[in-house]
Design a protein around this nucleic acid. Sequence first.
DNA 1: CGCCGCATGTAAGAGGTTACATGATTCG
DNA 2: CGAATCATGTAACCTCTTACATGCGGCG
Lengths: 187, 187
Amino acid sequence: MPRTNRTRFALLGFLTQGPKTGYDLRKVFEERTSHFWSESLGQVYPTLRRLYEEGLVVREVQKQDARPDRIVYSITEEGHAELVLWIAQPSKPQPVRNEQLLKLFFASPEHAPALSNDLRRHLDRYRAQLDRFHSFENQIPQLAPTEARNQMWRLTLSLGQRILAARVGWCEEAIPVLDAISKETES
Amino acid sequence: MPRTNRTRFALLGFLTQGPKTGYDLRKVFEERTSHFWSESLGQVYPTLRRLYEEGLVVREVQKQDARPDRIVYSITEEGHAELVLWIAQPSKPQPVRNEQLLKLFFASPEHAPALSNDLRRHLDRYRAQLDRFHSFENQIPQLAPTEARNQMWRLTLSLGQRILAARVGWCEEAIPVLDAISKETES
DNA sequence: CGCCGCATGTAAGAGGTTACATGATTCG
DNA sequence: CGAATCATGTAACCTCTTACATGCGGCG
């Protein structure tokens, strides 16, 4: 059994929140789940088509002139059933791969400056991500269909924040260490 | 440019710490980098062979009876150069995918019990991982070739610990929330 | 006048996981 | 006597990313 295709479920999941086009879906991944799930465009359209062929979604083509037609997908009963089945299954531990740490692990002292710079750049990204968290957090009360759902969404944010905080804290620990190594090596 | 093959560098990196067989390498990934890097067996042997064909490693076959011959790989000058080049390059943000959070995001209240159980299982894994951290941490002083390397290895552990702590803390937050949702739904 | 947003996709090509295959030895 | 360790690999399979392709309209 090869690993299971999770893109299917990610798409189905968002379609439970209303009909959407491929374009909508790609946006929604960026805005709402970028801290724990990303999808590349090249995966969205082919997978949507496959879901359609399997009857897990239906589609409605809306003609537009001056623009490509919108193809709006909606989830079916069967799609819902498949999604629910997947959610209920225990999730297996996923392979872990952190390229940055791998580099650090094999680095020599003379790489310290480059690594330090790299970390600084990443720190900036983390801060940008924190902003996105806040904007989504504020939207939850309006978006959440039920109180339980509201709480669950908050939990997904919470882990994101905790991990982000861990990374930020680590960068703040690591940068001075690397800078100190840089200085030693210079002299 | 398709995504770059990081397995190559992971293998080269460990070979800087002395000649090793494919089998050794797979073990070393488990023991030392399991908190930030994993390799599957099906990737190790083919990649080693490719590195050999490209002249980045050399090999020595040690005959054994009653067992398959050991094929011991050592890194070459060229391999070293390639590794160093890779380390110096800034690392790009990697796609993030957390299946567990994805499920939580799409879950309905009636899934709360299953999700809660799942989290409990993961908590156990986290604790086991913490143990592995400690055992490696204790080995660092003997294993580290230089003081700077020693500090870098400590940093990789530090991020692992911080993230693990974040996850544990989150589980402890999330389990009661999910259990509360379970109770509400029952009644 | 150029870039961004809307809107669809395809093609190429890794990269990576899982399962299969084999077989002796040692340890509990 | 069965499981784990040593030791090599292959086959199947697909998931996923990157880059390419097209084209209008609006905003600054």
